[in-house]
């Protein structure tokens, strides 16, 4: 269980965290969602006792991150955003090393990492630096789990990993959750947010909203229209120039459009775009996703 109360942190003149409060329940898979520079890493570093907060309190399983930092290091598994294992040691050596510094052995907690480790076990004599991105991720997770932590903190674990490995990685997290491990994970990918039990939307060092992914999208009050035409770039510019437009964002091959009110109809957009000589126009109403919520919150700040 993680309890964060009014945590603030500044680096010289940038305020990385502004009075953040959060609560992550035991055994929960909790996501911190936000763009780069939102303050996710700073928050995680405070929780893992790597940096001190300027003000506020945080407790990990009842232990204070400032005064009980030694005990916290025993119960927390941390996977930094950057691959931080020894690249010049082999897979096996890395795992043994981290087991030893935590005062345990690989055999003792093997059952916890078996599902993850068996996939990289065939390469156990290979240097960690020579592994593929997905395998590095699995090794890092194994090392973070080797001392059977109660809380697992993962800083953007899937950044730079291919789609298949990302999916596998999240399946593993789901499995770990069943073993009573509290997991706090940050990600810039909105699609991963839907896999969490609850998410916190973080922006500029502040929490915009905390809820389950479905509730967050349900709460979104606006109608979203997905638009497509042959010239995406001109489409965005034209839609932004439209007098009834409130927000317009590129979304893969589509453009998501939110009008100044929900009276704006798809047919209106069709007509407007036809006048502007767009070809193959498609405009349809869709269910909002987390990213829509997020983009809208951002533009409203």
């Amino acid at each position: 269980m993680i309890v964060i109360k009014n945590i603030s942190k500044s680096y010289s003149d940038t305020r990385a965290l502004k009075n953040i409060s959060l609560r992550v329940n035991r055994g929960e898979l909790f996501g911190l969602i936000g763009p780069d520079g939102a303050g996710k890493t700073s928050l995680m570093r405070i929780l893992t006792t790597l940096i001190l907060p300027d003000s506020g309190k945080a407790k990990m399983d009842g232990l204070d991150v400032v005064s009980d930092f030694k005990k916290i290091r025993q119960i927390v598994g941390y996977m930094p955003g950057r691959f931080s294992l020894y690249q010049d040691l082999s897979v096996e050596e890395n795992l043994n090393f981290f087991a030893t510094v935590f005062g345990t052995t690989v055999e003792e907690n093997y059952d916890l990492i078996r599902d993850i480790y068996y996939q990289i076990e065939p390469f156990k004599t290979r240097r960690a630096g020579k592994l593929s991105g997905g395998m590095k991720q699995k090794l890092a997770l194994s090392c973070a789990l080797i001392h059977k932590p109660k809380i697992l903190i993962l800083d953007e674990p899937t950044t730079g990993v291919d789609a298949v490995s990302r999916k596998e990685f999240w399946d593993m997290l789901k499995k770990l959750q069943t073993k009573e491990i509290t997991i706090l994970v940050s990600t810039p990918y909105m699609d991963e947010a839907t896999l969490c039990d609850r998410v916190a939307l973080v922006q500029n060092g502040q929490v915009l909203d905390v809820d389950s992914p479905t509730r967050i999208t349900e709460k979104f009050p606006r109608k979203i229209i997905r638009v497509r035409s042959d010239e995406t770039y001109r489409l965005i510019n034209d839609l932004r120039a439209y007098e009834k437009a409130e927000s317009v964002f590129a979304f893969g091959q589509f453009v998501h459009f939110v009008g100044i009110n929900d009276e704006v109809e798809t047919s209106e957009l069709d007509m407007y775009l036809e006048k502007r000589n767009h070809k193959n126009i498609l405009a349809e109403e869709i269910q909002p996703g987390i990213e829509d919520v997020f983009m809208n919150m951002q533009s409203n700040i």
Partner: peptide, 13 residues
């Protein structure tokens, strides 16, 4: 530089 110290610092070493 490589960042391994970050991983090592969260251990009880």
């Amino acid at each position: 530089e490589i960042g391994t110290i970050e991983q090592l610092n969260v251990t009880p070493v």
